[in-house]
Deep mutational scan, measured.
Amino acid sequence: QAPETKIVDKSRVACDGGEGALGHPRVWLQIPEDTGWVECPYCDCKYVLKGSKADAL
């Protein structure tokens, strides 16, 4: 199944896999201003900063 994409309001987000005990260790991710998105290294969930150029795609 394809990784999930989430639109977020802040450039710093936490990801834990979203499945409680079945998820992964919580990691904090920083969305770079130049790209407007970041992917979780564990679950490949893509976080897109709302209003960024990546959000316009």
Rank of each mutant, 00 (worst) to 15 (best):
W28L: 02
A14D: 08
P41V: 04
V48P: 06
Y42N: 06
C40K: 07
C45Y: 15
K10G: 10
A21H: 09
C15N: 00
L22H: 10
G20I: 03
E39Y: 15
S52G: 13
K50E: 10
P3H: 15
A2L: 14
G17D: 05
K10C: 12
V13F: 11
A2K: 13
G20V: 04
A2M: 14
G51S: 04
L29Q: 02
K53W: 08
L22M: 13
Y47F: 15
E4P: 14
A54C: 09
R12H: 11
G36Y: 02
V8Y: 00
P3T: 12
V38F: 01
C40A: 05
K46T: 08
V8N: 03
A21R: 09
L22P: 08
L22G: 09
K53L: 10
V27K: 04
E4W: 15
D55T: 01
G18F: 08
K6T: 12
H24D: 03
E33G: 06
V38N: 03
A21I: 11
I7T: 05
G51E: 06
K10M: 09
L49G: 08
L57Y: 11
K6V: 15
G18I: 03
E33S: 07
T35A: 05
R26Q: 09
W28Y: 10
E4T: 14
W28P: 02
A21N: 12
A56L: 14
D34N: 09
G36C: 04
K6E: 10
Q30K: 07
V48F: 04
G23S: 14
L29C: 02
L29V: 05
L29W: 01
G23K: 14
V48E: 05
L29I: 04
Q1Y: 12
K53N: 08
L22I: 05
D55E: 09
G51L: 03
A54Y: 09
S11R: 12
Y42G: 07
P32Y: 06
E19V: 10
V48C: 07
G20W: 03
L22S: 11
G17P: 05
D16L: 07
P3A: 12
E19C: 15
V27Q: 03
P3R: 14
I7N: 04
C43T: 02
C43F: 01
E33P: 11
P3V: 11
Y42P: 05
L57Q: 11
V27F: 07
G18W: 04
R26A: 06
P32G: 04
E4L: 15
G23H: 10
K46C: 10
G23V: 09
D16N: 05
E39W: 14
V38D: 02
E39H: 13
H24K: 01
K53S: 11
C43Y: 05
D9G: 03
R12E: 13
E4K: 15
C40W: 07
P3C: 15
D55K: 00
H24R: 03
L49D: 07
G51D: 07
G20K: 04
D34L: 10
L29M: 07
P32L: 08
H24T: 03
E4N: 15
T5E: 08
K10F: 12
I31R: 01
I7Q: 03
C45T: 15
Q30F: 13
V27S: 00
D44M: 15
C15D: 00
D55F: 00
Y47N: 03
D44R: 15
K53R: 09
A2D: 11
S52H: 04
G20N: 07
G18P: 13
E4D: 13
P3I: 12
K46D: 08
